[in-house]
Computed example of a mutant assay.
Amino acid sequence: MHRPAQRDHRDQHDQGERQPGRRNSRLGRLLVCAAAVPAVLVVAGCSSSDSGAASSGDAKQQTSTAKPSQSASAKAVQPAAYSTLPAACATLSGKTLGDLVPKGVKSGKEGATDDIATRASCSWSSLQNNGVKGSQFRWLNVSMLRFESEAMRGTGDKLAKDYYTRQVQDARSVDGAKNTKPKQLTGVGDEATEVRYDLKKKEGAFKQQTVVARVENVVLTLDYNGAGLAGEKSPSADDLMKAAEKAAKEAVSAVTAANRDGGASPSKPAAASPSKSASASNKS
């Protein structure tokens, strides 16, 4: 294709040489067209300028239209209802602890935390030796997690609801759990669920009771388990659950009391929302 194109160009040149009249006529037409070019450029320039002005106006209009949505996204969310947590090891009374962990009232161990106004936990354990009959073991843990309202994530109440749902699901899907029985509870915070199951370990057969409760923007998880060791009979799951429910109500009341009329706060409210549980529950 390249060679034929050159040949055509050369043939046209030769024809021009042989026909001077036609060449002069063609030159005249070229001069007329060249004279018309500036006018075309002026028109094109005006058209381009108008288009730019319109684009600028459209951009301003789009910016103006976008402002309301930006303002809406930056709008502050409703503040969380509760701003603090009670001291974890003080959520339950001495009488309640005496019922749940008879030999471990003074065994309370506070969980590690970087902000006790946002996350807190405490655990107790009890081993009651019954001589040749064996012994009764009990373990109790209360953990609390408080959520702040955040513009990007939502209100503290919503975040707490989401976490509450996940906690219940976790309690229902423990590895090795047998005879799992979840049940909705009433009268324990804004919403609550109990989950019971059996868990066999090398030490013995454990009866596990978990109560997950939400009150406003705080989620409370109470774990309570018991086992008969060294020949002692296993405790009644019904009795353990009844005790766990009572303790959960008391712990929820402690959360409410800590925030009533700016109640006794262990520390100032945290600015950030937590993203994980107050402490890992090392169930025995």
Results as ranks from 00 to 15, higher is better:
Ser126Asn: 09
Glu17Asn: 03
Ala177Gln: 00
Ala90Arg: 06
Lys133Trp: 12
Ala272Glu: 05
Asn24Tyr: 03
Val212Asn: 04
Asp157Ser: 12
Ser48Leu: 13
Tyr163Arg: 01
Ser47Ala: 15
Asp190Arg: 03
Gly226Trp: 05
Arg23Gly: 03
Val43Ile: 14
Ala80Thr: 08
Met1Phe: 11
Lys158Asp: 08
Glu245Phe: 07
Asp11Asn: 04
Lys133Ile: 12
Asp58Gly: 11
Arg196Asn: 11
Glu191Arg: 07
Thr186His: 09
Pro20Gln: 01
Asp115Trp: 14
Thr96Leu: 05
Glu216Val: 15
Cys33Gly: 06
Leu185Tyr: 05
Gly45Met: 03
Ser267Cys: 01
Asp223Asn: 14
Val77Ser: 02
Leu220Ala: 10
Lys283Cys: 04
Gly111Leu: 00
Asp198Ser: 12
Ser277Met: 10
Ala76Gln: 10
Ala151Arg: 13
Ala213Gly: 08
Ala39Leu: 13
Asn282Ser: 14
Ala88Asp: 03
Cys122Gly: 10
Lys246Phe: 05
Ser49Tyr: 10
Arg138Gly: 06
Leu185Lys: 04
Lys207Thr: 12
Ser49Gln: 05
Ser149Gln: 05
Val174Pro: 05
Gln136Ser: 14
Ala247Trp: 08
Gly108Arg: 02
Ser51Gln: 11
Lys60Thr: 15
Ala227Glu: 01
Thr65Met: 03
Ala247Val: 12
Arg138Gln: 08
Val219Glu: 00
Arg26Trp: 05
Ala243Glu: 09
Lys246Gly: 10
Pro269Gln: 00
Ser121Gly: 04
Leu199Ile: 12
Val215Asn: 02
Gly176Val: 09
Ser121Val: 07
Gly231Tyr: 12
Ala280Thr: 15
Cys46Pro: 01
Leu30Ala: 10
Ala248Thr: 10
Ser277Trp: 04
Lys201Thr: 15
Ala237Met: 11
Asp58Ile: 11
Gln62Met: 06
Gln169Tyr: 03
Gln167Gly: 07
Tyr197Glu: 03
Val195Thr: 14
Val252His: 09
Phe147Lys: 02
Leu100Ser: 07
Leu41Met: 07
Leu240Pro: 07
Ala36Ile: 15
His13Ile: 15
His2Asp: 05
Pro4Asp: 00
Phe137Ala: 11
Val215Thr: 15
Asp14Pro: 02
Thr113Pro: 12
Lys103Gly: 15
Arg166Asp: 06
Ala151Phe: 00
Arg18Ala: 11
Arg22Lys: 11
Ala264Tyr: 00
Arg10His: 07
Glu232Leu: 14
Asp58Phe: 08
Thr84Lys: 05
Val188Ser: 08
Ser173Phe: 02
Gln70Ser: 14
Leu41Cys: 07
Thr113Tyr: 10
Arg153Gln: 08
Lys201Leu: 11
Phe206Lys: 06
Thr256Ser: 09
Leu199Ala: 06
Met241Gly: 10
Ala90Met: 04
Asn24Gln: 07
Pro38Phe: 11
Val255Asn: 03
Ser56Lys: 04
